[in-house]
Design a binder for these strands. Structure first.
Lengths: 107, 107
DNA sequence: ATACAGTACCTTGCGTTAAAAGGTACTGTA
DNA sequence: TACAGTACCTTTTAACGCAAGGTACTGTAT
């Protein structure tokens, strides 16, 4: 898959998943890799960025299956940003699709 | 506009425009900036990359309105790549859109 | 003559971001 | 005791878009 397509969209995808349910990092990676090929080395820095920016808060929870899990939860800012990014995404893809199809019918 | 969304897609947009007609750089910038905000410092390096990669060929043509124009023309490789990228783009956006809408209806 | 706006090209340096590679530490099974 | 799985994290590399800057020609206004 074209790496460059993912840039910036991943953040929106993560925000969108977290908007549905609170997840821990490892879980997010599994969720995402169903739709988009993704690696750990991408998600953890991304989650750090989101936390640093105040888009998510975190809390630890013990697990029987390994080390404690760090759950991520959207803040209000995170929810607003998700909406905005989603709108931008739709607008952007619409623009691109029009451009791509532009030459197919009319000149 | 979110810069990150553009990454990689710009290349597809340029290939798509060139697939319709041969353009010079300055003309491309004007074409693109109708659909996507774009700057000169982005297009010229991109065009260099495309030429270096064998996706386009160039030829100079004099102009009465200023310096000679460098026209860009897709090669066969460029045309094939355009098709492939376009397919990838549709597949990718479909995946993302499903993910984005995933939580809205079913769990 | 001189200054400026427009056309048209180009480069350098910066910041962001995805990925590969590597590391830590716990649990359970062979 | 060794390994697979879970779960976290960091460092380094590469790619890309952009702002800022530079060159050079044409035409128009001062």
């Amino acid at each position: 898959m074209n790496i460059q397509f993912k840039k910036g969209v991943l953040e929106l995808c993560v925000l969108s998943i977290l908007n549905e349910k609170e997840c821990y990092g490892y879980e997010l990676i599994n969720e995402l890799s169903n739709a988009i090929s993704i690696s750990e080395g991408t998600i953890y820095p991304l989650l750090r960025r989101l936390k640093k920016g105040g888009y998510v808060t975190t809390y630890l929870q013990e697990s029987q299956e390994g080390p404690p899990r760090k759950y991520y939860k959207l803040t209000e800012l995170g929810k607003e940003t998700k909406k905005e990014l989603q709108e931008e995404w739709y607008t952007f893809t619409k623009g691109v699709n029009e451009l791509l199809r532009g030459g197919e019918q009319n000149e």
